[in-house]
Each structure stands twice: as structure tokens, then as C-alpha cells.
């Protein structure tokens, strides 16, 4: 057959000579290889203390953003929940009362905003759907926990800390 590439290698099964049949040189070679690795620097990243750098488009834990005055951007339009393929987002809207203008940017805001991190697939569609640029997946890796209920993140974990702190 015509060779498609020149990478083909004809393997010849030669009978082993006496030295090869004792396998001792090959064993010694193998031992040398492992010994070489013994002195090599390890490639482990000691995770909780050390972290690998995230790529630029890494999607981690969600954060609900504030605007430049420290007001919450989210207006509880529900587009993120609608776009979410995993149906991880739920929210309850509430009307802004007078005197809360410094807290919420829009007249309607999310009183409850919950993301179930066990359902979330970190696709980033909520981020794209948001008309107010209120949600971004720019956080860290979501930490582990023991109970399912602890994976439902409310506003206390999602909203950005106030600006002046």
C-alpha cells in the first residue's frame, strides 16, 4: 500500500539475544527513568493555598454588581432566570420604597435572588441575558459544602460588597 505519510514505521520482531532475554538492561533503564523523576520538581499545585491562574474567560461564582454609586443594578426583570438552561435562578421582585434610592438603582429590585449552585452549569447565559449588566460570573470556584441547602446562594453571598468598604 502507498504510505499516506512518512510516519509509518516497520516493526521487525527480531528474536531477542541473550542479554535482552534476561531483561536486566531494560530493567536498569526503567529504574533509571523512575530515579530521574524522583529528583524532578513536582508539578502539583497545592490547591487551597496555591491557585492556578484563571483564564480570562473563566466563569466562576456569580456576583450581582453595583453601579458606581454603590446601588444594586439588578431590576428583577427575570431575564436571567428565563435564559437559564438549568433553571437555577429564582427571584422575587419588590418595589423600591422612598428613601431606598441609594440602595437600588431601579424602581423595582430583587428582594430575594437565589442561585442553586448544584443546578448551575456556569454557561454564562444569565450574564448575556442581563440588560442591566447586573450579573457576572467573575468569581472564584464555588466552594464545596455538606448539605444541599447550603448550595442555594442568596443575596448575602451573591451581591458585591458595598463600594465604600
Amino acid at each position: 500500500m502507498e504510505p499516506l505519510s512518512n510516519k509509518r514505521k516497520v516493526i521487525a520482531f527480531k528474536p531477542l539475544n541473550l542479554l535482552e532475554r534476561t531483561y536486566l538492561p531494560e530493567i536498569a533503564k526503567g529504574m533509571a527513568i523512575t530515579m530521574k523523576h524522583f529528583f524532578k520538581k513536582d508539578v502539583t499545585i497545592r490547591y487551597p493555598e496555591q491557585k492556578r491562574e484563571f483564564s480570562e474567560n473563566f466563569r466562576g461564582q456569580h456576583s450581582l454588581k453595583r453601579d458606581e454609586d454603590g446601588k444594586e443594578r439588578c431590576t428583577a426583570c427575570g431575564l436571567c432566570a428565563l435564559s437559564c438552561p438549568a433553571e437555577a435562578i429564582t427571584m422575587t421582585a419588590a418595589e423600591r420604597q422612598p428613601g431606598e434610592e441609594n440602595l437600588y438603582r431601579e424602581e423595582k429590585y430583587a428582594a430575594v435572588y437565589e442561585i442553586n449552585m448544584l443546578r448551575c452549569i456556569f454557561c454564562g447565559l444569565c450574564e448575556e441575558a442581563c440588560p442591566k449588566e447586573a450579573i457576572y460570573l467573575d468569581g472564584d470556584i464555588v466552594p464545596t459544602d455538606f448539605l444541599r441547602k447550603d448550595f442555594i446562594y442568596g443575596k448575602d453571598k451573591l451581591v458585591e460588597p458595598p463600594l465604600n468598604q
Partner: peptide, 13 residues
């Protein structure tokens, strides 16, 4: 520990 060193790892720490 040695297994880890032979495999470029850290081992129990």
C-alpha cells in the same frame, strides 16, 4: 511519599 516523588507529585502532606 516515594510513590509521589517517583510520579512528580507531592504525596500526603
Amino acid at each position: 511519599k516515594l510513590a509521589a516523588f517517583f510520579q512528580d507529585r507531592v504525596g500526603p502532606n
